[in-house]
Amino acid sequence: MKIFFTNVLAYFSQIHTVMESGGSRKLVVAPKYAAVWDDVAELWFLATQAFGSCISIYPELLEPVLTSEWLPKLVKEVAMTTDSKTDSEINDVYLTLLSQLSRGHPEVKEVILTNGGLQLARSSGCAELEGALSCG
């Protein structure tokens, strides 16, 4: 199971990228997936939901989350594109995922906080994430 979720994280880390244009930044589907996004968008959405739910149930998933660069990168990328024209559904999915992850384990919460998670929660108006990061 750990190998499977390590591969899920690799997929998550590649699916979106930040594009800068005219001084603004936007979270977009990475060129590698752009041609097939319509086919994989639902898979991405379901995988993201499932992963967020699994983190509190399966503690062995913490190691891949904490040892990969995916989580800090995700927090930073979502933070730098919150006020942009990024598809709000994409940002909402990531904000929900970050909320779930921050509730899953104190070390994961600390990584999110260290990488600007609380500022992200406030700037995006995500009360769920702010609450998850502020408690305990």
Rank of each mutant, 00 (worst) to 15 (best):
S99Q: 13
C54E: 04
E69Q: 15
N115G: 10
G117I: 07
F12M: 13
K73R: 14
A79M: 03
L98G: 12
D39H: 07
Y94K: 09
T17L: 10
T114V: 06
W70L: 08
E42K: 12
T6C: 11
E128H: 09
A50I: 05
M1S: 05
A10V: 11
T114Y: 05
E77L: 08
S124N: 12
L118C: 11
D87H: 03
V29L: 10
N91H: 01
A127Y: 03
E107Y: 09
R25E: 08
I57T: 13
S24F: 11
L9N: 13
I112Q: 04
F45T: 04
D83A: 15
L62H: 11
A121F: 07
A47Q: 02
L46Y: 01
A10K: 14
S99T: 12
L61D: 13
L95H: 05
S134L: 06
C135G: 06
A127N: 11
V78I: 00
A132K: 05
L74D: 01
V78H: 00
Q100R: 13
C54T: 10
L9G: 04
M19D: 01
W44N: 05
W70S: 13
E20T: 08
L129G: 06
A47N: 03
K2P: 02
Y33R: 13
L62R: 04
A10M: 13
L95T: 02
W37M: 10
I3D: 01
P31E: 15
E107G: 02
G136Y: 01
E110Q: 11
S24R: 14
S99V: 06
S84Q: 07
S102T: 06
F12E: 10
Q100A: 01
M80H: 07
L62P: 00
S123K: 14
W37R: 06
P64S: 05
T114F: 08
K32S: 15
C54L: 09
I15W: 10
H16G: 08
S102A: 08
A34Q: 13
P59G: 15
S124V: 05
V8M: 04
L95D: 02
S56E: 10
T114A: 14
P106A: 01
S68C: 12
C54A: 12
L129C: 07
L46E: 01
E128R: 06
L61S: 11
G117T: 10
I57S: 11
Y33H: 15
V65K: 11
V65I: 15
S84N: 09
L118D: 13
N115A: 06
K26G: 00
E60Y: 14
S123P: 07
V75I: 03
G125V: 03
G23R: 10
D83L: 08
V28L: 15
E128G: 04
M1V: 07
L74H: 03
T86P: 02
I57K: 12
T96G: 11
Y58W: 04
F51W: 00
L98K: 15
V65S: 09
S68T: 15
Q49W: 03
Y11R: 09
K85E: 07
R122H: 13
P72W: 10
I15A: 14
R25G: 06
T86N: 02
V40C: 04
S134H: 02
H105Y: 05
